[in-house]
């Protein structure tokens, strides 16, 4: 554990609390892509299958994994059951099969072993790197977003960005080389946030509304 990773994980935690806060205070999931949230459940469940082996890394690790799985499923419940009428599927039109298929193929080509833990792990790494796309696509379509929604996406972007210095730090302080799968997917994932991040920094953080140029 190092500073960047801890800060990244805390940022990830913060993003979930921001999302829950947004849904509960506005009593609405307007502006949130249900498809992205489904993808996150798939990501967490496929990545944390090692929970079933009971080979613990640390209490921190296990508690966080359980929290990410639990909270992501809870968010689906909020969107599909509790605040269902506020969820508008007609603007959430990204075809996620175009993400799931290629990620499945990639995980069969690039993995650390053909086992029931490694292939889903690899799949989850690839899928996470593109899981935000339906959300960004929705933002693109509506052309604007509630400020709190942009804080949620920004916190997710910060989490991914912070994992990069974490890997650089680990490369120099540990003796295990580079995890090419996580690093390449992580860089791709972070790059997807660049456009959004630019508008977030230049508009939202200056007190303006998040609006895309027409």
């Amino acid at each position: 554990m190092n500073f960047f990773r801890l800060l990244g994980d805390l940022s990830h935690l913060a993003s979930i609390f921001i999302l829950l806060h947004k849904i509960q205070t506005t009593r609405s999931c307007r502006g949130i892509s249900f498809k992205t949230q489904v993808l996150y459940v798939v990501v967490f469940v496929t990545r944390y299958l090692d929970l079933l082996t009971f080979q613990f890394h640390s209490i921190y690790n296990t508690v966080m994994k359980l929290f990410f799985i639990g909270s992501s499923i809870y968010i689906l419940y909020l969107m599909r059951v509790r605040f269902r009428p506020t969820n508008d599927p007609s603007i959430d039109t990204f075809r996620i099969e175009y993400l799931l298929g290629p990620c499945a193929v990639l995980s069969l080509i690039f993995n650390y072993g053909y086992t029931w833990l490694e292939i889903p792990w690899s799949f989850s790494i690839f899928l996470e790197s593109v899981a935000i796309l339906p959300q960004l696509f929705m933002l693109q379509r509506t052309g604007e977003a509630e400020t709190i929604t942009t804080h949620y996406i920004a916190a997710l972007g910060a989490y991914r960005a912070l994992y990069i210095p974490n890997w650089i730090f680990r490369y120099f302080t540990e003796d295990n080389g580079v995890d090419a799968i996580a690093v390449v997917a992580g860089i791709v994932q972070t790059a997807l946030y660049v456009d959004f991040g630019w508008i977030y920094f230049t508009k939202v953080l200056q007190g303006q509304k998040f609006e895309l140029p027409a």
Binding site: D9, N61, F68, E174, D175, N176, G177, I181
Partner: peptide, 10 residues
């Protein structure tokens, strides 16, 4: 090639 233990990350 070293196989890094990245599985300790979230």
């Amino acid at each position: 090639i070293a196989t890094p233990d990245v599985h300790d990350e979230l």
